[in-house]
Design a protein around this nucleic acid. Structure first.
Lengths: 198, 198, 198, 198
DNA sequence: AATGAATGAGGGTTCATTCAT
DNA sequence: GATGAATGAACCCTCATTCAT
């Protein structure tokens, strides 16, 4: 039935949201299933009925997280802004910039779960790589990326920046979202420490 | 007695080393006091006699870790190599590039422990800031850093790079330590995505 | 409607069969209602609609089991074979010789269920006693049972044999169903360890 | 130290006894670790410290149980009574005649524990077989067992009797320990249903 | 100073059962 | 009558910590 289906989905969403929130706040290990249940206003068992286990839950959270990041990145790249703006939007993707819980999550997801490991690796190998390659192409086309720079190195650099920003959210989170600092950092990404010359 | 003192210190060191090893391998939460005791070949209670609690232990580990990083950075800055080499050495500090256990540790240390939070913040505010400022000064003096770049932004950039590299150790760990990639990345840090022109 | 009735009965049978199978395989406590539902291809709730509770289900299983044993025994006694063959057929009743799940079942059925306890005891007192008495009468009539042996003792002996064989199914289950061993054991039941003399 | 050792052993014994009692009363699966802890007046965790897991506990219980039975049997065989008395003493071993919890225990012990399975099988193959062979030899020597009876069959018969009595403890437990019934049953074991003739 | 033994609190998970449709 | 979804209670187990020696 429709009502039941929708209700079930609502509970599912509610659990997922609660899980994401608490994982971000306290990390994966410190968040208990009972905490999640309480926050989602749901019985603990309902979580098991939906996701099978805590690992099953984190699996879904990770999948949703990864897809979300990718989707947003694609949306940004499809727009018409100049490259620096796109770069800024992608690298500073707000939704993921929220404490370094991500690493722990990924680790937890991959650790005891070969299937998940495969999923993550494949996701990285195909989707992320392709998306990042698009970014780099755009940058080269618009003259913001040195055409001689190998795609491999560029991708690694961007990844380091993403993760670094991600892991520095404690330093950034108090800034107003329109602070000049973002622009300046973005400028650094493109022109380096040495800055624009001539 | 001297022998007793030395023996005591040896136990202390043994516990610390065991803790660091296991934290790196399995993370802070997944490492139990009993694990550490077993690896250090010591009774659990001995750990409590020395460090008071698990949090007390992690406090010491963090202090040692931070001091180590700082000391190495100072050593590097005191040398005579050109700025790019120094930058590379500092940013890629091998000893800390070892799984992203660091973030979890810091979080654990700071979370339930105001004293520790104070220590870390003060450490950051004084020691790290000062050291990073030294790096930036050197860079400016040698013409590798845009003199108009504010110290604040530069420091943030360097911190982002450090943490990003740290969090990307999974991508870097299979590389030979003399790979060109390090040089290329370092080049990117200085000259940006746009590269050296003219 | 007839079709609905028959369908309902089919579900009932399907549940009972699934329960018996799983109880035999894994025991009563280790078999969950959800397991039974899955094997019977039925919703858990259907089991409750039919039997009220897990205990209610086990009650029905036990009743069916007991009636089955009794019915087979009566069939055998009604036949024309000589007494030793009848004895063998009854004591080695294949259908119940299938792991010692039986005891657990009876215990579970009787434990929290006074009504069931009453049923089992009455069943024992009337049906089983009567049937066993028939066996003994036949044995005496054909000269295979010492006429001076009290019915009480003889019945107890037969019951011990039945349960002993039941509980030894692990030792017997690999034997071919026509093995000499069955005859030899049966011979022992009649002639004892000392054997036929003279 | 001596005091600590003795205290530890006392706790160990206390736990074992509580476990045996409860297993006999309610069966293995229905007895929770917390029940055992409460009855032994000990923290649950102490049970884990001593036995590692519930399965570990049942392992020890089973080992103790088996060794006990064997030891008593050997003691009996070493005595000077005539064979029928020995047979009675062994087959009706009181200490094990206490509900059919035994089967469930063995099953639980062997199920998830290859090491235990090995232990039980080896125990059966060597100790039990040898002891039973001794019984049979004594019976033959004293003329109570048909010399032509194969050892295999005789052992199986005795085992069936043991288990049958074991599983019939509900029928026997109300009898006074000196009841004639025991003698009569024993008589049946030796002379069979047909009784002594001539 | 060091230890073996013991523990209260809490974690993930399963189960028999009920509710709403 | 049948079901999918949801649940409270209970279970096995682990952990950081303390007690007695």
């Amino acid at each position: 039935m429709d009502g039941s289906e929708r209700k079930k989905d609502r509970k599912r969403e509610s659990i997922l949201r609660a899980a994401v929130d608490l994982f971000k706040l306290y990390g994966f290990k410190k968040t208990s299933v009972s905490d999640i249940a309480r926050r989602a206003d749901v019985s603990q068992v309902t979580i098991y009925n939906h996701f099978g286990s805590k690992d099953g839950l984190v699996r879904e959270v990770v999948k949703a997280q990864l897809s979300g990041i990718l989707e947003r990145a694609r949306g940004i790249m499809a727009g018409e802004e100049p490259f620096p703006d796109k770069l800024e939007a992608i690298v500073f993707d707000k939704a993921q910039t929220a404490s370094q819980y991500h690493g722990e999550l990924m680790q937890a997801a991959a650790q005891n779960d070969p299937e998940m490991r495969e999923f993550i690796e494949s996701f990285w190998r195909t989707d992320v790589t392709r998306a990042t390659a698009d970014v780099i192409d755009a940058g080269k086309r618009e003259g913001y990326i040195n055409p001689q720079l190998s795609a491999e190195t560029a991708m690694l650099y961007l990844e380091i920046l993403r993760r670094g920003i991600f892991a520095s959210s404690d330093l950034l989170e108090d800034l107003p979202p329109d602070a000049d600092l973002y622009r300046e950092l973005n400028y650094l990404f493109i022109y380096g420490l040495i800055g624009r010359r001539g």
